[in-house]
């Protein structure tokens, strides 16, 4: 029996739904798991059930799972406590692994964000930045592994339940777990001709495809629709026991990859690699709208997105 503590930080809650998405497979692993702390499911308070304690407390567990990045001091504190109490710590989902969508805020300084949200926005009555009874925000959005050591990363927005199951099984059996260093393109069935003869299309334009036939569909990038497949780790299309044809999840819905699985390997630079990939098929990276945010959509933590330097005339 392994004890599990789960914690959600700066997150939408989709990762917890992805755990439930294990479906009947969850019933197979449940007997060997005991959840000792999980705010989304259980009424377990940090400072004792009646608030009688003065220190934040999380019960000890073999496996700790954290979903969501770190946006405020409370979340930082919880992450540190989780690290102290858990033998193995898993970062669940893109927010925990790379900062995720909320990390797009790293393009601006905290002061800019406060100004925009509480004062500059036309539809808001201007007010002071609230500071009473709420934890202060950290200077930027952090991925969990920037604050504490993380043993296993499971990226995805949301994660693929197959990978959660695989990782949990590996941990229960004491085996190491690692996602292969493959790109989404390596698993993508679409047809590539290494050349694009159309320009970049607008982001919401549809790709051309025949429903059900992935093999005859032209590569998204070659159709002029920005797809982050070349610089994104593969795994989203994985099936139980390797059954069935592997088609990346977004491609399965005839949509280009959005890059939620993050860089292919640690230390890779998706921004540069993507520009190289675009220019190698003859597209102009300069014409990509909102390029910086688009290419860093899920990976803005870990210092990838940062405010632009102040400069006269910009």
């Amino acid at each position: 029996m392994a004890t599990v503590a789960e914690e959600w930080l700066n997150i939408c809650g989709g990762c917890e739904v992805a755990i439930l998405d294990l479906g009947e497979k969850l019933l197979d692993v449940l007997p060997s798991l005991e959840f000792v702390h999980m705010p989304v499911l259980m009424d377990h308070k940090y400072f004792g059930q009646t608030g009688e304690k003065s220190e934040l407390e999380i019960p000890e567990a073999d496996v700790g799972m954290i979903s969501g990045g770190i946006r405020n001091e409370k979340e930082k504190h919880v992450a540190e406590e989780m690290r102290k109490k858990c033998k193995t710590l898993i970062a669940l989902g893109s927010c925990a692994c790379f900062g995720g969508i909320p990390a797009l805020a790293n393009m601006y300084t905290l002061d800019d964000i406060y100004e925009k949200v509480y004062r500059d926005s036309k539809t808001t009555e201007s007010a002071d930045t609230p500071s009473k009874d709420i934890p202060p925000l950290t200077d930027r959005v952090y991925a969990v592994d920037e604050v504490v050591n993380v043993d296993v990363h499971i990226p995805g927005c949301p994660m693929n339940p197959v990978i959660i199951l695989e990782a949990l099984t590996c941990l229960l059996e004491g085996k190491p777990f690692e996602l292969p260093e493959r790109s989404v393109c390596d698993d993508c069935p679409t047809k590539r001709e290494e050349k694009s003869d159309v320009g970049l299309k607008r982001p919401l334009q549809d790709a051309e495809f025949t429903p059900g036939e992935y093999n005859t569909m032209r590569c998204f990038n070659e159709q002029g629709i920005l797809c982050l497949g070349p610089v994104t780790r593969s795994g989203c299309g994985k099936q139980y026991n390797g059954n069935g044809e592997v088609v990346p999840r977004c491609v399965k819905g005839y949509m280009p990859c959005r890059g939620c699985f993050g860089p292919i390997r640690e230390g890779a630079n998706p921004l540069i690699d993507m520009m190289t990939a675009l220019s190698s098929i003859g597209l102009d990276a300069k014409l990509v709208e909102d390029r910086r945010a688009l290419l860093n959509r899920y990976i803005g933590g870990q210092n990838r997105l940062r405010p632009l330097p102040a400069k006269a005339g910009r």
Partner: peptide, 13 residues
């Protein structure tokens, strides 16, 4: 030219 684009993306002058 590409490098100048990237400098912009990386927040460098």
């Amino acid at each position: 030219e590409a490098i100048e684009l990237m400098l912009e993306d990386f927040g460098l002058e």
